[in-house]
Design a protein around this nucleic acid. Sequence first.
DNA 1: CGGCCTGTTGATCTGTTTCAATTTGGGTGG
DNA 2: CCACCCAAATTGAAACAGATCAACAGGCCG
Lengths: 245, 245
Amino acid sequence: MTRVAKHLIADAKAEKNNRNVCLTCDIREMAVCSALRPEELLRLNKIATARVLEPEETVFYEGDEADTLYNVTTGCVRMTKMLADGRRQVTGFLYPGDFLGLAFYDKYAYSAEAVGIARLCRFSHDKFQALLRDCPELEHRVLGQVSNELAAAQDQILLLGRKSAREKLASFLIHLSERAELRGNDSCMLDLPMQRRDIADYIGVSVETVSRLFTSFKNDGVIGVPDAKHVVLLQTNVLEDLAGL
Amino acid sequence: MTRVAKHLIADAKAEKNNRNVCLTCDIREMAVCSALRPEELLRLNKIATARVLEPEETVFYEGDEADTLYNVTTGCVRMTKMLADGRRQVTGFLYPGDFLGLAFYDKYAYSAEAVGIARLCRFSHDKFQALLRDCPELEHRVLGQVSNELAAAQDQILLLGRKSAREKLASFLIHLSERAELRGNDSCMLDLPMQRRDIADYIGVSVETVSRLFTSFKNDGVIGVPDAKHVVLLQTNVLEDLAGL
DNA sequence: CGGCCTGTTGATCTGTTTCAATTTGGGTGG
DNA sequence: CCACCCAAATTGAAACAGATCAACAGGCCG
């Protein structure tokens, strides 16, 4: 069976279960949904539909009318911004539980694409706003999450503005390690669902530099690279020193 | 009379008027306070005190316990983050109406210092949180402002990660021009309250590069620089092209 | 008037990019 | 199931943007 066919089946299943996506949702605990009481969860359930994304599939484009809001349920989604001449900046990677499209304007401020296969939970912006109005606790959670994102963005600003390429990549790996730990995964055996270009565009260097630095870290015995999609942290403390803070 | 003495007097006046700082506040229209009904404004008034800052005076340090929240009323405040070896990144400049210290953690994620003389409105974090709980509309406004800040941070991430030094400075000037226009000021005659080092640390280049670029723009006839604290935009459209998007 | 801090300009140096050539590896079709 | 094919990743050499080092000018304050 081809991979595409598998996804079509998964998609069909998701549609079938649409009636109770929220109630059976794997990430109900970690998402903002956990703020909701049963009756509100039912209401959220009514306005939620599932969406399955192929690798590299676009969720929405920067500048599109922001009429839909998403919650990542599985996989990894990247946010990107482009300059007129094609230079690209990845502004962040989103994992299960993260909100997507929370622009409080009429247009999305960035594009969003699935890194690998990803599943999203989809809400109409208007209906979600209405739910927010009726459920201040939910809005409070959303505020908390946006605040988190802002703090992360400021860390990234420090990284991009003042760190060397070596410090940038070390910081990136430490950051992934911390996120893995938060999700209850091994903090030393890292999954890198994104490709080198994504990493490069995230930390503001060229792909070649990313590649050279991986090799350099490997030669220094700081990391192991079993394959392009996995990194083993061998000396986390050394990597933390390299990260510059 | 020395400048310091003048400020002491201003400070004393602020203290005297403390009873109705909010009701007489110049920026009541533009701040989140505009979401409040009269009785809530009175309540906000009770928990607000004024604070006057000397140039370069620190409001709080990164890592301090975040027990206080501020609103800028006059002047300009910069947010900074530092690396262990002293490299500095300015993460943003705040103007009247902007919130300061809105970290929803126990520690501030950045330091804040007055650029010139500045006035702030000060709230206890706990009491403000309590007010938020009772006034969802206020929380909604706060969410809107944090969302704005997040969008601005993502723009800055694009700038830092992918723009050339020339594009960075051009973007910075355009950004200042837009903010000036929003505040109802002349969008061509720009105030630069901050010094060259602040600009350099904001756009992630060296002071020397900032200086050279000002000279270059001046020689190209794109801007005029009557003195170090003022810039005149002579060819805004050319500057916009230089900004890269 | 003198000292100091900020800003500017010049000369050199270096980290990172760019250009170019391989190598690797996963997916597809025969 | 294997071999091919193309995209992704790596490695090397050359070029360059911007940093660093250093000297100097200007303005403000004591």
